[in-house]
Design a protein around this nucleic acid. Structure first.
Lengths: 115, 115
DNA sequence: CTAATATGCAACCTGGAGGTTGCGTATCAT
DNA sequence: ATGATACGCAACCTCCAGGTTGCATATTAG
């Protein structure tokens, strides 16, 4: 899309695309679900029962971390990950805004038609 | 992610991951923005001013369409795309739910601690 | 102290995402 | 009728996401 649009949108806004992309994977969505309970969970525990390797799980967690959705903290020999709700809330607000913009524009359009 | 968790979550729910993934690209997010005005827009118009080829734009639009976020309709020689707000709203609700689950679980935890 | 546990790091593999070009075909404008 | 416009289809290219394996290292358990 035009460079102008892109720039104007991404200028000082959070990197929505990155966050959405982080959620755009079944495995990572499942991880988010699992962490949504609030309790920090270690990599091993998150890997337990999974069909993929611990390394793969780790990579997914790092993706979520770079997107700001999750934070990690070492606890002895294990690394525990916890959810951060703020970026998720930001996405929610973003989606609301898109819907609202639709309403407003369509509202104006309706007024125009009715005149 | 254990198979059980995955299945129980994805069983009859919308394919959230697919929708999130569709939004997880700057170009496609820009397209969504542009369509959020409500007016159906043709591929050519969406391509105008973009730095990528019409074909690339088309591919992105198809991705959005498969995710249900956008719908296409032929209008003479052009194909116009329009936004569908429902899937976006579903995502919004999904994100709300994650946040709410956090609150509830943490609430329970707090009660437990205080007893 | 020693074995088991929990991770990190790095190399490596493979498929598909994102992009391009070329060409064929409706449809619209003149 | 004819040229310009708006697409679709298909082949092709490149790079990186998602996954694995192997090995080294720090912690904890007994």
């Amino acid at each position: 899309m035009s460079r102008q649009i892109h720039k104007s949108l991404a200028a000082h806004e959070p990197p929505y695309a990155v966050a959405f992309a982080a959620l755009g994977d079944e495995t990572r969505l499942a991880l988010v679900q699992r962490l949504s309970a609030g309790r920090p969970v270690s990599i091993s525990e998150l890997t337990a029962g999974a069909r993929i390797t611990r390394q793969a799980v780790t990579k997914h967690l790092r993706v979520l971390e770079r997107a700001g959705i999750v934070r990690s903290q070492r606890w002895g020999r294990e690394t525990r990950f916890a959810l951060d709700r703020r970026p998720l809330h930001d996405l929610q607000v973003y989606l609301e805004r898109v819907g609202r913009q639709w309403d407003e524009t369509l509202g104006r359009l309706k007024v125009f038609v009715e005149e």
